[in-house]
Amino acid sequence: MKIKENLIHGLFMFNALLVVLVLIGIFALLVNTSIPAFREIDIKEFLFKAAWNPTSYVKETYGIGSMLVSSVMVTAGALLFAVPIGIGTAAYLSDVASPGVREMVKPIIEILAGIPSVVIGFLGIVFVGPIISRTFGLPNGLNAVNGSILLGVMALPTIISLSEDALSSVSKTYSDASLALGASRWQTVIRVKLPAALSGVIAACMLGMGRVIGETMIVLMATGCAPAMPKNFLDSVRTMTSTIAIELGEVPYYTTHYYALFAVGLVLFIITFCINMASDMVLHKYQGKRG
């Protein structure tokens, strides 16, 4: 009996360690494959120059400036759209909706999370794009706004379900006290419950953000992917993820271009890692307070 227990214990520990090892392995691989790129590329030029054209007819350039701006733009746009809707829906589900409605809506939101991104990207081309082009009087709808809206839709399920969890786990005594003091339900949700669940809600938004910034297929299909530095939200954008997706298939292995793509991947990894880390810290703070 003791042996069996130890065995199971060991097995579980091995599983946990495996995940950590995989993460470390990916990081090591990215760093290792990125470093050779900087034998030929100046690191300042890589980070701050706008032009990325490794297969140029004239002269290869490796600058991720416009890609960084593009990624940040669509991510910010997506959050601008998804955070208010997401938190609103979460508040509705946790406090306003009757249990019957809640039981029906929650699974539907979870189904939304299961829609493949390629399908959402397709909707971007045939549905959202034309609407944007008509609304803004543009010749086409392949731009940052389109990408932002679609990515917002992708982030919604994450933001809604995690925010709803955070709001629901606010102690009932809070809302009871607030209502007893004569506050309306609206006031209770906005002034009492939301602040109490704030760190959980922030963590939900940040996890949604982590999901958005790494998303590839949607931006590849719906944003036009022009490599020029975007001037505003109605310009075409080309994110880091779509560049990697386009170019990794055809790049000759072990060339500067190949290493440079891994370097782009490393930058992306560091960004998402920081976002996840920050959301984790916020979440811990929140759980600590409750406990």
Binding site: N53, L220, A226, R238
Partner: peptide
């Protein structure tokens, strides 16, 4: 290579 003999405009949209 045949028509441009140079780089594409960076404003050209890259379609799938």
């Amino acid at each position: 290579d045949l028509l441009l003999k140079g780089d594409y405009s960076s404003r050209m949209k890259r379609m799938n």
